[in-house]
Design a protein around this nucleic acid. Sequence first.
DNA 1: CCACGTCACTAAACCGGTTTGAAGGATGCT
DNA 2: AGCATCCTTCAAACCGGTTTAGTGACGTGG
Lengths: 348, 348
Amino acid sequence: MVRQRRPTITDVARAAGVSKGAVSFALNGRPGVAEETRQRILAAAKELGWTPSHRARALSASRAFAVGLVLARAPELLGADPFFPAFIAGVERVLAERNQALVLQVVTNRRAEEDGYRRLAADGRVDGVFLLDLRVADPRIALLGQLRLPAVTLGRPDVASPFPAVLVDDQPGIAAAVNHLVELGHRHVAHVAGPEHFLHGAARRDAWEIALRAAGLPPGPCVSSDFSAAGGARATHQLLDLADPPTAIIYSNDVMAMAGMAVARERGVDVPGRLSVTGFDDTELAAHISPSLTSVRTDPSGWGRVAARTLLDLIDGDGGADVEMPPAQLVVRGSTAPPPTPHPHQQP
Amino acid sequence: MVRQRRPTITDVARAAGVSKGAVSFALNGRPGVAEETRQRILAAAKELGWTPSHRARALSASRAFAVGLVLARAPELLGADPFFPAFIAGVERVLAERNQALVLQVVTNRRAEEDGYRRLAADGRVDGVFLLDLRVADPRIALLGQLRLPAVTLGRPDVASPFPAVLVDDQPGIAAAVNHLVELGHRHVAHVAGPEHFLHGAARRDAWEIALRAAGLPPGPCVSSDFSAAGGARATHQLLDLADPPTAIIYSNDVMAMAGMAVARERGVDVPGRLSVTGFDDTELAAHISPSLTSVRTDPSGWGRVAARTLLDLIDGDGGADVEMPPAQLVVRGSTAPPPTPHPHQQP
DNA sequence: CCACGTCACTAAACCGGTTTGAAGGATGCT
DNA sequence: AGCATCCTTCAAACCGGTTTAGTGACGTGG
């Protein structure tokens, strides 16, 4: 026999010989239902294979039981970015436990991004959202406030924000990379940054500069790029074209670092013999290229878990406090080494 | 003045001096409403800033207005896989046009994957799903049939399937890679395959074998791996350890190919001088490593668009036919070259 | 002048849950 | 015995849309 229609709460009520209300109370473990009746109801529900309709519940509770994520990425970057899938995986783990769903929107430019949030809010598809890739003076903070959509930011915004933040500190990782290079003897350490309008891009740039100054060294040249392989290659050419090229380059992500290593190689600049290179993210591939890439290990999946927990707590009305994540760690591999020894006549 | 509560259809009806039903008819462009009245209603709606509640509509229409995607990936692969973000971007583009949402579930093992589909179906969160990474004798086909959940498969299943398929043919791409290598003079072409239980892994392996046989050559050694950099490195060591190592290796994805190139380099085997290498996916990084990677270009974003269209049409009751996608193209770069010339005493 | 069809619109039912207010029955206390 | 109290249960309202059945006004043809 084929089940034509999925059973409703009314069917269960009829089967158990009680009212709809009683079924609802029994299912949600609320007091006011005799234990014996509760058991009878639950048995009837199991018998009929009934699961409460998420749609009906959503309407009744005025809740979506879902959270949203709007992702704005240039199409060419989407595939290469290791952050976003891992972040989502972490988010999912928490959502699954709490029976919530993740509604994803991928857009390819900023204008569409704000529309994405608007749509999620207008439709009431989600109860809250994640705010990633914070930008300088990010307009989305105000937008979400205006849309009355709870949110959690990844990183601390540079504008006043009513939302809890999951604080990821890139600074120690970059500082560790700088110090590692300085200890190896480098005095001329350049940086290939991410886009300047991203807070994390700017933060890594600042961390690089501060760490160098703390070591008593002038910051070397810095080139802003876009996190893509093509961009990393371009930036590397720029740096190596300089009259006084750096002996080490700190890249703001692994993809640019890998492209940079290739550029160096094509130009006959040995890595790490004549140029040391560090990445950021510690992607799986970083350990498996040649030379293997010294990089800063981050934990996007862990951030996702914490961000999800924070957001759900915020939606439930408790919580709302910032959470500090452990700092990123430097993983030293084969792409960093002492700088080339100076020419003999320069030695003391 | 702060708007406390979002307006409902009742508010609009009252403002326009009509009934709820009239508002609904006007909004949905259905006949039976005088043009003048319709304008008045739409004006009132705009005035109040009313958007129909997606939740109420979902309950009433017994539709979720959303589609689902359950993604099963080992955690370590999540970041490196260029396919999935691009696919989703393509999907999103179509969904946004039609005001549908994408509900994502990421799980890390198969057991959880089936539960993922079960949950999506039980909650009625989605009206249909995408079925990716088809496996040999894939149990999910039967499961979805049983759950009465419309689906679209990416690739043609090897079991009877009631669902439309978006047909992606990896075969021409692999064949082109093989032929390219054969034309360069290679006679000993190995393959590093993806996991055997994936249909696309098996398909690429078969394509490699068939193309070699068609060229009158015996298939070289084949090692199954897991699409990860670590796996690609292991497989490459295995192949280079052979008494009669191949002069070319066709990898089933770019990540493994890149790791393989690194292994070769570490072992002092020049690429492409002594070993030619091809990848699959044509990730952005492929063009920016050294030597640049010859690879097979695929179009996951295009597949996503077509898959989304097909699924939405299926849900709407029309369509249901398979769609054939254009074959993948070989992109020749620096990692392939003629094989090393044989030792003099072997020459005629 | 009446029967009939058409059009514009309304009232009410419906989707499937949750929540509230009240009723009924058992128990305890005086 | 009478009354307050507690527990269990039910009926009905509610969430905010869509859809159907029905009503009144109007125009037309016989």
